[in-house]
Simulated scan of single mutants.
Amino acid sequence: MDVVFVSHVIEWRGPSPYFFVPVPEEQAADIRDVAAMATYGWGVVPVEARIGGTAFTTSLFPKDGGYLLPVKNAVRKPQGLASGDEVTVELSVRL
């Protein structure tokens, strides 16, 4: 399953700062439809994603009925991304 969306980078300031891109509700609903076939535990959904010229493999985190796409420094820094930046994400759920 493939989706493309535009969202903004957010920073989570927990014990260790981390950056995420929230999946918009429309695409989150589509992902929920196939999540049971893809998840390997705790509700996380394995995906392949692309932001700009950087492709990466990760898992979506469930949050408040939606999903957060984690954006590692190895992805964020080459793209020059900071909290609040708008990004286009290409995402494939790994079924």
Results as ranks from 00 to 15, higher is better:
Pro78Leu: 12
Met1Phe: 07
Ile10Leu: 03
Gly65Asn: 03
Asp30Phe: 10
Val21Gly: 10
Ser16Leu: 13
Ala82Phe: 13
Leu69Thr: 13
Arg76Gln: 11
Pro62Ser: 05
Ile51Ser: 06
Thr54Arg: 14
Tyr18Ile: 10
Val87Gln: 08
Ala38Asp: 06
Tyr18Val: 13
Asp2Val: 04
Leu68Ile: 13
Val75Asp: 04
Gln79Thr: 09
Val44Ser: 08
Val21Phe: 07
Gly66Leu: 03
Ala49Gly: 05
Arg13Cys: 01
Ala74Arg: 14
Phe20Pro: 07
Pro46Gln: 03
Ser16Ala: 11
Asp30Pro: 00
Val87Trp: 07
Glu86Thr: 14
Val89Arg: 05
Glu90Ser: 12
Ala49Phe: 04
Gly41Asn: 04
Asp64Gly: 02
Ala55Gln: 10
Arg50Glu: 06
Gln79Gly: 09
Arg50Phe: 02
Arg50Ile: 02
Glu90Ala: 12
Pro62Arg: 06
Tyr67Met: 08
Ala28Met: 00
Ala29Ser: 07
Tyr40Pro: 00
Val71Met: 11
Pro17His: 11
Phe19Gln: 12
Leu95Pro: 15
Met1Gly: 09
Ser83Asn: 11
Val44Pro: 01
Ile51Thr: 02
Ser59Thr: 11
Tyr67Pro: 07
Val45Gly: 01
Gly65Val: 02
Gly65Gln: 04
Ala55Tyr: 01
Lys72Gly: 09
Glu90Trp: 09
Asn73Glu: 15
Thr58Pro: 04
Asn73Ile: 08
Val3Lys: 00
Val34Glu: 08
Arg94Leu: 14
Gly43Ala: 04
Gly52Gln: 04
Val3Asn: 02
Val21Gln: 07
Arg76Pro: 08
Ile10Lys: 04
Phe5Ala: 00
Leu68Gly: 06
Thr88Leu: 13
Val3Phe: 03
Thr88Ala: 14
His8Pro: 00
Thr54Gly: 00
Glu26Gln: 10
Thr57Glu: 06
Tyr67Glu: 05
Ala74Gly: 06
Asp2Glu: 09
Ala74Val: 12
Asp30Lys: 15
Asp85His: 10
Asp85Lys: 09
Val71Ser: 09
Pro62Gln: 05
Ala55Lys: 12
Ile10Arg: 04
Glu11Cys: 10
Pro17Gly: 09
Gln79Phe: 12
Gly80Met: 14
Phe5Cys: 00
Met37Pro: 00
Glu86Gln: 14
Asp64Ala: 11
Lys77Asp: 15
Ala49Val: 03
Pro46Asp: 05
Trp42Ala: 09
Asp85Gln: 09
Gly43Ile: 01
Ala74Gln: 13
Ile10Gln: 07
Ala82Glu: 15
Tyr40Lys: 14
Gly41Ser: 03
Gly84Asn: 08
Trp12His: 15
Asp64Phe: 07
Met1Asn: 06
Ile10Pro: 01
Ala82Cys: 11
Val93Met: 04
